[in-house]
Each structure stands twice: as structure tokens, then as C-alpha cells.
Nucleic acid binder design. Sequence first.
DNA 1: TATTGTTATACTCTATAACTATA
DNA 2: TATAGTTATAGAGTATAACAATA
Lengths: 172, 172
Amino acid sequence: MARSDTVPAASCENLEGNLGWGLGVLSRALADAGRAATADVPGGPRGFQVLFTAADGRIGTQLAVARKLGIDRTVMTYLLDDLERAGLLQRSPDPNDRRARRLTVTPAGLQLLADLEKRMSAVEDELLGELDEHERRSFRESVRRVAVRLDAGDRAIQCQLAGQPDAAPTPP
Amino acid sequence: MARSDTVPAASCENLEGNLGWGLGVLSRALADAGRAATADVPGGPRGFQVLFTAADGRIGTQLAVARKLGIDRTVMTYLLDDLERAGLLQRSPDPNDRRARRLTVTPAGLQLLADLEKRMSAVEDELLGELDEHERRSFRESVRRVAVRLDAGDRAIQCQLAGQPDAAPTPP
DNA sequence: TATTGTTATACTCTATAACTATA
DNA sequence: TATAGTTATAGAGTATAACAATA
């Protein structure tokens, strides 16, 4: 009764081996450190990501940016209001589809963004400090590949995962 | 003006290379799929994690579990109320410190937990489907090591990150 | 006095619905 | 009719503060 009653028949030996726990810890740490590093940015870490995505230019409209970042479109409105009011970004009607708004980062926004990228990069390296350079590169690359597939790749996968947890894994 | 105005002086080429974006996508996907896979558990994915941690036995009291999982202690109360009401878990006063409550997972809880671990494991493997087996093991191990250091290791690191983003990285 | 846990309250985010304008 | 964006409202989730019991 010393142990056999407290140790469950777990497929995973301990909590630390649980991916959900690990990603939770990592995400919280990144969010906390990110909030501190983006204290001067409206919207915090999310404001930074919006600036970053808008500056990239390939994702032009505000709805596309919102989808890419997992931000609700109604939340996006307030976020952009704040960023625009701070003079970091501008909305303008898309000439091809006048319903949509194109996002343009102002010179002030680009300048802040360059600084933010340095800060966030430092934060990330600090968080991943446990890993050596090779492991770090490998880790970043894995995250990138997994995320790209989850994001653009197959939305079908997410639907499958969300809809039928016990269903057969091989649909035609 | 065709490009030089839209492409910023970014240290990271594109959004996909951004760790924050990648972890965001991955965490959201895991949360979504986890919610679906734990639809029958009070508290959803978090309820599963509490069960898992409590069943491990090494982290006995409810406050310790809450800290380990990044759950506010006031939220923990409601969470445990639900889990206890569902007959999955029990609270009992710690004989060594009668302020604290020890958590015991009931047989029904252990049975559900075993099933949940299978479900969550399947969800995780599906999410990491982009990686081959070796990469997957390596990725999980990296997450584990990074999280363990962030969690127990040095809370000083988190304080440093959170407190002074621009400060010198080598305090005495 | 400090800490664990609970409760009640207030606040912040997020989701829902309704509306405008374009397509 | 459907979509991009906005606005207002309601709801979920979270944090804050006060309290009781124990250390």
C-alpha cells in the first residue's frame, strides 16, 4: 500500500513527459515574458504579431491577418483601432475589394517593429536556453513545420481531431 | 516602391519562422483537439491535467498541483468542486498540515484517466504527424527539458525576463 | 504573522448577434 | 445571397479582496 495505490496505470510515466504540460509551461512563459517585452505596444504580444504580419505584406487584409494569428475578427477591430491610434499602422480600403481593408505599417511602426523583433528574439533565446544551438535550431524547425501544416496544410486534420476523437483514422 | 516600402528590415524572414506564431498555432490546435477529446471531463483539458497530476501522487496538495499547472488557486477550487462532484476525485485534509488538502483520484477517476491518456496521446501524435518518429521523440524531449527548467529550475529566469527586458543579461 | 483554502466581487477577455457596405 | 468590417451586448474566464482555519 506504500505505492501500488498511488501510482496509476499511466502510459506516460510522469507529468513532465506530458506534451500538454510542457507546451503549457512554455507558452505561459513566452506570454509572460512577451507581455513584459511589449509593454509599450498596444495589444501587447498580439499587437506585435499583428504589426509583424502586416509588415510582411503577403497577408494584406485585416481578416486574413486575424485568421493567420487565430484572432477573432471582432477583437481584431479593437486591436487595430489601438494600433492605428498609436500611429503604428494604417487601414485603407482594398482597391480590388472595397469591403476589405489593407494594412500598412507606418515608418514609426516599422521602427518599433525592428526593435521589438530584437527584444522578442532575445526573449525566445532565453526561454530556450536549456537547448544548445543545434537543438534549438532543430526545435524551431520542428515547431515551424508542425505549425505550417496545422495552419495552412489541412484544415481537415483539425476538423477530424475536433469532431470525432474515437473515429477510424483512415477516411477515404 | 514596388517592394522596398513593404518589406521591413526584419531579422526573421517571415511569420512562419516566428516561434511565437508557431507555438500559438500548436497550442491552439492542442487546446481545440483536447477540448473535443475531454468533452466528458469537468474542466476539459485542464480537468484531465489535474486528474493526471493528482494521480501521479508526488504532488499531493491542491495548491501544489495548481502551481504546477499554472492554475489560479481560486479557479482550482471550482475545478475540484466539479471533479469531486463527478466522483472522479476526493479532497481530504493533509494529516501533516491540516490547512492543506490532499487529492485522491477515485477508482472511477483512474479508469477515466487511463482512457483519457490514450485519447490525448492519439491527439498529440496526430498533431505532430508532420514529424517522423525520431523527430517527434526529439521534439518531445526538447519541450520536456525546456519546460522543466522553466518550471522548477530557475524562477529567477522568469523574473529576469519579465522584469527588465533591456537590462544587462549578466547580473552579479 | 504567514499560508491554505474558500467565497464573493469585479474585471477582462472572448464569443454572439445585429448592422452597414460592398460583392 | 454571401462576405468584410464594425458595433453592442452577453457570457465565459480570470483576477482581486476579504474571510476562516491552521501553522
